[in-house]
Design a protein around this nucleic acid. Sequence first.
DNA 1: CGCGTCTTTGAGAAACATCAACAGCGGTGG
DNA 2: CCACCGCTGTTGATGTTTCTCAAAGACGCG
Lengths: 225, 225
Amino acid sequence: MYVAFDTGFLSREQAIHVDTSRKRSALETTMKLPPGHFLFHQGDEGQTIYRVTEGVLRLSRVSEKGRQQVVAFGYPGDIVGFPVAGQRNTDCDALTTAKVQVLPARLPRDGSGGMAEAAFLAAAALLEIGNMQEHLMTLGRKSSRERVSSFLLVLMRRVGRHDRDAIHVDLPMSRADIADFLGLRTETVSRAFTDLREARIIDLPTAQHVAVLDPDRLEEVAEAD
Amino acid sequence: MYVAFDTGFLSREQAIHVDTSRKRSALETTMKLPPGHFLFHQGDEGQTIYRVTEGVLRLSRVSEKGRQQVVAFGYPGDIVGFPVAGQRNTDCDALTTAKVQVLPARLPRDGSGGMAEAAFLAAAALLEIGNMQEHLMTLGRKSSRERVSSFLLVLMRRVGRHDRDAIHVDLPMSRADIADFLGLRTETVSRAFTDLREARIIDLPTAQHVAVLDPDRLEEVAEAD
DNA sequence: CGCGTCTTTGAGAAACATCAACAGCGGTGG
DNA sequence: CCACCGCTGTTGATGTTTCTCAAAGACGCG
C-alpha cells in the first residue's frame, strides 16, 4: 500500500525530520516579508533555499503571453525556491506577513560545499518531487469539484484548527490564486465552493474562511478516483 | 528573460554536465529491459536512481480507483526513479528495449553515504523539479492542441532526426499513454494529431512516426500563451 | 458612506469527454 | 500466401463540463 503522499502538494512532516538532524550554521538567517512582497523572481540567480516558518507564500510562473500558473503555496515547514541551473524558476511573494529561514543550497562542485548541505537539499528536493507528482494527478485527472475538494482537504490536514463541530481553515489566497493553482477559472472555483456549501460539507462564514463540517465526505469528493 | 526550461518535461543537457564530473564506481551497473518489463513499481523500496542510456521508459501512477496518470517518459539522458521517503512513487516500465545505469541514491545520514552522491542526487532532483513545473504549466493552462504540440515539440528537440525537409520523431508510446500524460482522452489526442496533419504542420506516415514539416508553426501552436 | 475590488451567480458558447462505429495494421493460422 | 482476428487508432454524433461574458452582491478601505 502506498501512503507516502496523502498530504498532497504540501511538504510532508518528514521534511522537518530531515532538517532537525542537521546543525544550524551562522549562514541560516531569518527574513521577514510583508504581504505582497517578493522573496524572489523567476530568473533570479540564487544559491539558497528557504524554509517557511510563518505565513503563506505563493509560488507562480507567468508565461510570456500572460498566463499565470500558481505552482504551489508555501506553508510553514515547506521548503521553497529550489534553484534550477542556479536560477529561480518561479516568482515567490508573500500572501500574508511571512518569515523564512535562508538555507544554503550550493551544489558542492569538487568538494567545496558541505555534504550535509547537499544531503538536505537532496532530501527536500525529493519531497518536493513527490508533492508535485501528487499535484500532477490533480491537474491531469480530476474534475473541478474534485480539485477544489483536494485542495481544501490538504489545507485542512495541514493547517486546520479543530473545533467542536468543524475544522477551520483560513484561505489567505484569492479565488484567482486557487484557480491558477488548480488549472481552473475563478468562477469555476467559486461554483465548486458553493456546491460544497450547499451539500453541507463545508461552511463559508467569509470567502476567506472555510469550516469543514464533514471531513469524510470532503475526502470522498476529493478522492473520487 | 527566463529560458532555462524551454526543453520542457525532459531532462536538460545540464544533467549530463553534472554527471560527467563525478567518478564512476563499481556500484554503477547497467540493466537491460525488454519492452513491457517493469524497472520498479509504485511503493517499492529503493535507494537507487536510474539513468536511461537507451530506449524509452514510461513512469506512471495509478490511483486506487484506476485512473492512470503518466507522470513522465524517460528518454536517454533522463534520470528516473527518485525515491521519496525511500519508496518509488511511480511505476516504471519499458516501452522499447531499454538500458539503464543503476546509480546509488542513499542520503548520507550521519556521514555514511558519499558527498558526490548526494550532490548528484540533488542536482538531478532539481532538474526534475524544473521539468515537472514545466509540465504543470502544460496541464494547468493549455488546450488539447497546445498540449499535443508541446509534447511533439519537446520530443522533436530531444530526439528528432533531421532530414532534408522534415524532422522525424518516433512515438513508442500509444495514444492512450500520450493522453494519460497530457491529461486528455485518446480520441482528443487523435483529433489534435489530425488537426496538425491537416494544417500541414506534421505528417503521419504511421501512427507511431511523426514528421514535423513546419517546426516554427508547431512552436506557435504549442507556445500559444 | 461611497468606491473599488473580490466573489458569486446566471446565461450562453466552446472545449473536451463519451459513446459508437469503422478503418488500418500486425500477427496468426489455415 | 492469404484470410481472419484482435488491437490500436481514427472519425462521427452527442452529452457534459468548463470557460466566457455579463451583471449583481459582498466586503474592505478611505
